Simulated scan of single mutants.
Amino acid sequence: MDRGRTRVSYQRNPNFCERIGQSLIGILIGSAILIGSSVLIFWNEGRAVQTAKSLDEGLNIVVSLDNPNIVSAENHGKLVHLIGSLQTDKELHDEAYNINVHAVKLRRVVEMFQWEEHETERKYDDGNGETRVEKEYSYSQVWRSSVIVSRGFDDSFNHRNPTEMPVPSKNYAAQEVTVGQFVMSYGLKEKINNFKQLGLSDSDIHTQSRVKVHNDYFYHSDDVHRPQIGDTRVKFEYAGISGKSSLGTPDMVTIVARQIGEKLLPYKTVAGDTLELLYFGSLSPKAVFDREMVQNTMFTWGLRFVGWLLMFIGFTCLTSIVTTLVDWIPIVRDLVTMGVCLMNLSLSISLSLTIIAIGWIFYRPLLGFAILAMAATPFIMSQFRGQPARSRMD
């Protein structure tokens, strides 16, 4: 790690009126975030319901093929399930490094040894209406697959990177991939991404004398143990072993797609989705659709969390003016901040659950109404807790 300079600057702290102005702007921003998060959650629930319907439909109509080497005309246009090994006619070839593999995909990954800048910022309140800002810069030497632009470095003179990669990265893909007698679509080929690094030996050394092999990399360097800025290393990765190969036996895959003659194409469901599924290994139709259901559930919950987080941030922006009004009173400020935070948490959870419930009421009514009841729980509890207080006042 090479330590650079530390730069010091001072920022004037905003006064009370300026903080109020910032809070008013926050209200506008918070409103926009709330609208956006509500749209995101509602769209996500619609997508989840549609995907669930499509998967249910697919599982009910899929036809299993006992032998992928036999193409039956009676399955034309139907959603089929088949298991077989990947096959390609030709090897993938990288001419620059004389690499040949029998696989569906091959990629050349090039990395260059470069400077990388790290910035550490610290802020201190000087107590005189200003904030002291210290920015400390440091530099390390790393391997990266893309060019790190050094023109914007704080110390670009002593830490200068090349402006382009000496050797370009490159991807190769088989034109035609078959499973038995069936030809896979482009979409199915794109799902083959089980990349593994290709092992290299001294016999694979490139014709250029400066190229060396170390730890399954081609090094363009005088010394692989002490690389210099601008040195490069190259590795190769493959995916989808196919046909006779020194890499091992062909990969077995399970496919669910629409049969059109000898081609496997996307299947359009009544719900509006397309089914074009591929998994490695031998799986039953139910196992395939169960995995898709799990993926749909995980993706749905991931977007729900993002939507809720945005909604919480939106409510926080909306209520920031409340904490701004009392931030000059230490004890009151802390109590109000905690109360507002809890209120924002409750509102964001309730509103998120309400939108989620609306999306599921028509598909699964019991689940939808159960979620809606959960969303209303905080408000119902507040009503019950408020009744004894009103009774004592009476």
Rank of each mutant, 00 (worst) to 15 (best):
L275Y: 04
L275N: 03
E276V: 10
L278F: 01
L278G: 09
Y279M: 06
S282C: 06
L283C: 02
L283G: 03
L283Q: 12
S284V: 03
P285G: 01
P285K: 05
K286E: 15
A287G: 03
A287E: 14
V288F: 06
V288A: 03
V288E: 00
R291Q: 11
R291P: 07
E292H: 04
V294I: 14
V294M: 13
Q295G: 13
N296S: 06
N296G: 04
T297V: 10
M298L: 15
M298I: 08
F299W: 05
T300R: 14
F305N: 02
F305K: 07
F305S: 12
V306L: 14
G307K: 02
G307W: 07
L310D: 03
M311Y: 05
F312R: 03
G314D: 07
F315E: 08
F315M: 04
T316R: 12
C317P: 01
L318R: 01
S320W: 07
V322R: 03
V322T: 12
T324G: 01
L325C: 13
D327P: 02
D327E: 09
P330E: 02
P330L: 01
V332F: 04
R333K: 11
R333C: 05
D334T: 13
V336H: 02
V336D: 00
V336L: 06
T337C: 08
M343T: 06
M343V: 13
N344F: 13
S346R: 07
L347V: 14
S350L: 00
S350Y: 09
S350G: 13
S350N: 00
T354Y: 14
T354W: 15
I355T: 06
I356C: 05
I356W: 04
A357W: 01
A357E: 04
I358F: 15
G359R: 02
W360N: 07
Y363W: 03
R364K: 12
L366F: 12
L366E: 10
L367Y: 05
G368T: 12
F369L: 11
F369P: 04
A370F: 14
I371W: 10
L372F: 14
A373G: 15
A373K: 09
A376Q: 14
A376H: 08
